[in-house]
């Protein structure tokens, strides 16, 4: 399968503070990949680099063979819900339509028809003319995913998708992501290992550096014990030794 995202020897710093170093990653078509890690470990920064919102200090990021800033239409970005002003006067339909925003000019008739279809696809027809802040957490997440996908995006980037939703909405979102991953690539940044277990193909832990983690029965436990700690105390070697132990135990190495 074709690589949708290629990251090679990436490094990024905020001023003197190194956030990411030696990060390499390849994500294939129709994969669901999860990135977990402690607060301040660089998860969201990595997602923002892939979305083209930040420029790497070193290394290469290619999204479908091009730098992210030259491939706007294919990236569907879903930020954390906390980042919105609830008093902003915009309807659900207008939010989803804004996924087709152009640098200049008006929306076309086709844009509105495409948006209507997307509204229907995510099951928000009955609330499409309501203010965006009147939706439940689960509906709100579907609205943001619809906005990300309406431009016919091939890659969906989700930042903490469960931060604002209850457990029943989590199930419905999980099924929805599983369904859409047949058509596109999904990259999820989350603290919620329970949410991604069962749907993710691969899990990576990031705390400055990126380490792949096996998906096994102890996945949630080792991650929460290793990554529930403050950033400075998190040690990748614990995870790596766990990975190696699992691999040798399974006779894979």
């Amino acid at each position: 399968m074709v690589d949708q995202i290629v990251i090679n020897d990436l490094a990024f710093s905020y001023g003197n503070q190194t956030v990411l170093e030696n990060v390499s990653l390849r994500i294939k078509e129709n994969e669901i990949v999860t990135i977990i890690g402690p607060n301040g470990g660089g998860k969201t920064t990595l997602l923002r680099l892939i979305a083209g919102l930040l420029n790497p200090d070193k290394g290469i990021i290619l999204v479908k063979g091009k730098p992210p800033k030259h491939n706007h239409g294919v990236i569907g970005y879903v930020p954390q819900h906390s980042h919105f002003d609830n008093k902003y006067p915009i309807t659900v339909f207008e939010v989803i339509l804004s996924g087709l925003i152009k640098p200049f000019g008006f929306y076309s008739k086709e844009d509105k028809i495409t948006t209507e279809k997307m509204v229907e696809y995510v099951g928000l027809e009955s609330v499409k003319n309501r203010p965006f802040d009147s939706l439940s957490g689960g509906q709100s997440q579907r609205m943001l995913i619809a906005r990300a996908l309406v431009s016919d995006a091939h890659i969906l980037l989700l930042d903490e998708p469960t931060s604002n939703i209850d457990s029943s909405s989590e199930n419905s979102l999980r099924n929805f992501l599983k369904d859409i991953s047949k058509k596109l690539t999904v990259l999820i940044v989350t603290h919620d290992t329970g949410f991604v277990s069962g749907i993710t193909d691969r899990v990576f832990c990031v705390n400055r550096q990126l380490v792949e983690h096996p998906i096994d029965s102890s996945f949630s436990q080792i991650v929460s014990s290793s990554y529930g700690l403050p950033t400075k105390m998190v040690r990748h070697d614990q995870v790596i030794s766990h990975v190696n132990k699992e691999h040798s135990g399974n006779g894979n190495d």
Binding site: R48, A51, G52, L53, K69, H72, G73, I75, Y77, P79, H83, F84, D85, Y88, I90, E94, V95, S98, G99, I101, K102, P103, F104, G105, F106, Y107, R147, A148, S151
Partner: peptide, 20 residues
């Protein structure tokens, strides 16, 4: 109007879509 409405709601998303 459309650019203002989208950008002031979510500036980062508009940037990802290539809007200056």
């Amino acid at each position: 109007h459309n650019q203002f409405l989208a950008i002031f709601f979510d500036e980062e998303f508009a940037q990802v879509r290539g809007v200056k």
